[in-house]
Computed example of a mutant assay.
Amino acid sequence: MPRFVIDPREFADQRVLVTGGTKGAGQAIVRRLSAAGAVTVAVARSAIPVDSTPGLFVQADLCTPEGAVTVVRTVKDKLGGIDILVHNLGGSSAPGGGFAALTDELWQEELSLNLLGAVRLDRALIPAMIERGRGVVLHISSIQRRLPLPDSTIAYAAAKAALSTYSKALSKELGPKGVRVNSIAPGWIRTTAAEALVQRIAEHSGTDEAAARQSIMDALGGIPIGRPSWPEEVAELVAFLASARAASIHGSEYTIDGGTIPTV
């Protein structure tokens, strides 16, 4: 796992909200920005793990409008608002089996988890950023918006493609108002959620987990650096894009996939 030098004052007095902030890349993002002086808020629908230490934790299901209301009310009451908004929430619980296995309910779940939660929080929290004339919004998309895996992640890939398009459109509107918007498209990240996908594919195909992992690698066309990304590497990219070092980077999507995407 990589180690990075961190300026402990880079995000001093900055209020940061990270959705899906208690596991995987989200947890790494919270730790990275907290170490740089930010006041961090982690949001998740499950209880906070014992090894997660955000400044504030809000338990809420952002797949529902009510969950978004809970988060917005809490951060406004406790912090007065947010300066940096990181939409890390995402994932897929769809079964293998391709398009025919996806019901309307599964499609709605994937869209709610990977797109609509971000839309709801943006609508509620960005207006205050506009009033202040500054703010940063980062949407965590996925390379699967360009390389969908047909066996099990069609709906996830479609939702992430929508998130990237939404993020670009939002950047056009908010740039003149002082709010920077960018997106990040990770490839395979070594997280518990990724391992859960491996298990689902293994169960559906009747193979072991090693074969399921290889099937994912094959579907992606391989990873030239020979491994998935670490969550901490994604967090480092988030820290850069959220910082003043990236003050002129706006309306862009950054891919972090070990070279998986084979085209320019």
Rank of each mutant, 00 (worst) to 15 (best):
residue 2 P to H: 12
residue 2 P to W: 13
residue 5 V to G: 09
residue 7 D to R: 00
residue 10 E to F: 08
residue 12 A to P: 05
residue 17 L to G: 11
residue 17 L to M: 13
residue 23 K to M: 13
residue 26 G to S: 01
residue 28 A to D: 08
residue 29 I to L: 08
residue 31 R to E: 15
residue 31 R to P: 00
residue 37 G to T: 09
residue 38 A to F: 14
residue 38 A to S: 09
residue 39 V to N: 02
residue 39 V to M: 10
residue 43 V to F: 07
residue 47 A to V: 13
residue 47 A to Y: 11
residue 58 V to W: 12
residue 58 V to Y: 12
residue 72 V to Q: 07
residue 78 K to H: 08
residue 80 G to S: 03
residue 82 I to V: 14
residue 87 H to A: 05
residue 91 G to N: 11
residue 92 S to P: 03
residue 93 S to A: 13
residue 94 A to T: 13
residue 95 P to T: 06
residue 97 G to I: 03
residue 99 F to Y: 13
residue 102 L to P: 07
residue 103 T to F: 14
residue 103 T to Q: 12
residue 103 T to W: 15
residue 109 E to C: 06
residue 114 N to R: 10
residue 120 R to K: 04
residue 121 L to C: 11
residue 121 L to E: 05
residue 121 L to I: 03
residue 121 L to D: 02
residue 126 I to V: 15
residue 132 R to H: 12
residue 133 G to F: 09
residue 140 I to V: 15
residue 145 R to P: 00
residue 152 S to R: 15
residue 153 T to G: 11
residue 173 E to T: 05
residue 174 L to T: 00
residue 175 G to E: 08
residue 184 I to P: 08
residue 191 T to K: 08
residue 195 E to K: 12
residue 197 L to A: 14
residue 197 L to K: 02
residue 200 R to H: 09
residue 204 H to Q: 13
residue 206 G to H: 11
residue 210 A to V: 09
residue 213 R to Q: 08
residue 215 S to W: 03
residue 220 L to W: 01
residue 227 R to L: 06
residue 232 E to M: 08
residue 233 E to S: 04
residue 236 E to C: 05
residue 237 L to D: 05
residue 238 V to Y: 02
residue 239 A to S: 11
residue 239 A to V: 00
residue 241 L to R: 04
residue 242 A to F: 10
residue 243 S to M: 05
residue 243 S to G: 10
residue 244 A to H: 04
residue 245 R to V: 06
residue 249 I to F: 10
residue 249 I to Q: 03
residue 252 S to G: 11
residue 253 E to P: 01
residue 257 D to Q: 03
residue 261 I to G: 00
residue 263 T to N: 13
